[in-house]
Design a protein around this nucleic acid. Structure first.
Lengths: 206, 206
DNA sequence: CGACTGCTTGATGTCTCTCAAGGCTAGTGG
DNA sequence: CCACTAGCCTTGAGAGACATCAAGCAGTCG
């Protein structure tokens, strides 16, 4: 698929695209995680989406990037120039269809995310977030037993968790300690989380 | 384009698709406006998007509808069965590309909407909402002078405004009366709004 | 050791929700 | 024509959740 692309590695917090510029390139995530952020008038950041392996990045057609793309973890992307990508799509209608399906799926999950951000309490957001991260981690590692406690690393710090969930770092921290006090999770390391009672966490997430 | 589609008219509050069913049809909006809503665990509704003429509706590939589609106004849609639509796309790669571009644009504006819903106060949300509706109405009618007061009808009631903005009807009502008291808007009718000081409204919206 | 960064914890404030009551309008039936 | 009812909107009082402001703590790097 991507023999005509150029591989590029990235480090955490590296910025791939800036909001407002026209990068004229697009590509696919191969490894790692990136985030899309927009900035409010007051200068606050808000994550509006995340990109994981196989996700599409950039815009295949002219226009300024609507969001800044920043690396959350180390990883790798495969970049194409826009023109070569367009040519590729034109000659591979199947790929174009696949891209369309994927974009529609992303749209659905983005809309679903709106619910999370608007109609949930901080506790619900955080519980849901932990479950989601754990699931993503679990599929990658497949180490954990179904019922036992699951341990994983958050791919980033409190600030970024807060930006994803639309909260402040203080609220994130308080909710985490509350979950810890309740015995639902443990925090063996600063970025390490152990889910001790997944059912309870699920109940909070609703 | 749509000679193979079936026309269907709809009335306000008519439900086109239910969340969770697999409608096996998709189509385009021709006239009117629809909204996509999701329901929280507690039974509260939240608008996650709106559909206007030329927007795509439904899913072109198998899968349950992620959201309920309800008419906001009277209007008309052009519906295709999924299979005929897929065939159409396969034989018209240009249409498929157009649909892809449109979906990407929708994704961008949906992500942009997340900012509005998470990082803005009730006053900011409502001010921005009024400006947006006014602009949409204005382009349709093109009656109003650039600087003078603009009068238009809200396409729906307080409850739906609240659902769009992620607020309660009480908060919407309070913010409206506050704007009225400040002389920024007038409310000649229950669903009619006059913008008296657009610049002030814009300043509040940020 | 001291500066720095990221996390936690506390005190206070404010915005919005919730609950509750009252008003306006429209439609209905006597 | 006038109660009467039903919806929708407004308005108020109170509570709760989260943000903000402000320290304090624990690692890390020079």
């Amino acid at each position: 698929l991507g023999s005509l692309g150029r591989r590029r590695h990235f480090q955490p917090d590296e910025i791939i695209f800036w909001e407002g510029e026209d990068p004229a390139i697009c590509g696919n995530v191969i490894k790692g995680a990136l985030r899309l952020t927009a900035v409010t008038g007051e200068g606050r950041e808000q994550n509006v989406g995340a990109l994981y392996p196989a996700d599409f990045i950039g815009r295949p057609y002219p226009g300024n990037a609507a969001f800044t793309v920043t690396a959350m973890t180390a990883g790798e992307i495969c970049l194409f120039s826009r023109t070569s990508f367009e040519n590729f799509l034109s000659s591979n209608p199947k790929m174009e269809r696949r891209l369309l399906m994927q974009t529609l799926a992303t749209l659905d999950s983005t809309r679903r995310g709106i619910l999370t951000l608007t109609r949930r309490t901080a506790a619900q957001k955080l519980a849901g977030f932990l479950i989601e991260i754990a699931a993503r981690d679990e599929t990658a590692c497949a180490t954990a037993g179904r019922c036992g406690p699951v341990t994983f690393d958050l791919p980033f710090g409190r600030r970024q968790v807060a930006d994803v969930l639309g909260l402040t770092i203080e609220t994130v921290s308080r909710q985490l300690t509350k979950l810890k006090s309740a015995g639902i999770i443990a925090l063996p390391g600063i970025r390490t989380v152990t889910i001790r009672q997944k059912s309870a966490l699920q109940a909070i997430a609703d």
